[in-house]
Amino acid sequence: PDDLEKRARELLKRGKNPDEIREYLRNAGYDQSQAEEALKRAL
């Protein structure tokens, strides 16, 4: 898994919901489609 996916998994483990994770990834400078893909793979 790429770093983005790892980060998404990490956040899920900490109890973040998908919307929070999307926002976090966007704020971290990733584009929307990258964030969506990583989140899908992590779920």
Rank of each mutant, 00 (worst) to 15 (best):
R41L: 08
D3H: 10
D31F: 03
D31P: 12
R41D: 04
A42H: 01
Y24I: 15
N27V: 09
N27Y: 06
Y24M: 15
K13H: 11
K13G: 13
K13E: 14
Q32N: 11
A28L: 15
L25C: 03
A35P: 00
Q34G: 05
A28E: 14
A38K: 01
K16S: 10
A35Q: 04
K13D: 14
Q32A: 14
E5M: 15
A38Q: 02
E10H: 05
L43I: 10
P1Q: 13
A38H: 01
A8I: 15
E36G: 03
L12C: 04
L25F: 15
R14S: 15
D31I: 05
R26G: 06
I21G: 00
A38C: 08
L12P: 01
L12G: 02
E37P: 02
I21H: 00
K6G: 09
R7F: 15
G29P: 01
K40P: 01
A35N: 01
K13T: 08
E36Y: 03
E5S: 10
A28N: 08
D19G: 06
A35R: 03
A35G: 03
A28F: 09
Y30L: 10
Y24S: 08
A8N: 00
L4G: 07
K40R: 14
G29K: 02
A42S: 04
D2W: 07
A42Q: 02
S33N: 13
R7H: 11
P1W: 14
P1H: 11
A42N: 02
I21Y: 02
K16P: 01
E36D: 11
R22E: 06
K13S: 13
R41T: 06
L11H: 03
A38N: 01
K16F: 15
I21F: 05
G29I: 01
N27W: 07
L12R: 05
K40L: 11
G15S: 02
L25H: 00
Q32E: 14
E5N: 08
G15P: 00
A38T: 07
G29A: 02
L4N: 02
K40N: 12
R7S: 09
R22M: 15
R26E: 09
E23M: 05
R14N: 15
P18H: 09
A35F: 10
L11R: 01
A35C: 08
A28Q: 12
D3E: 13
D19R: 07
E20S: 04
L43Q: 08
L11A: 05
D19T: 08
Y30R: 01
A38D: 01
L25N: 00
N27K: 11
E23Q: 08
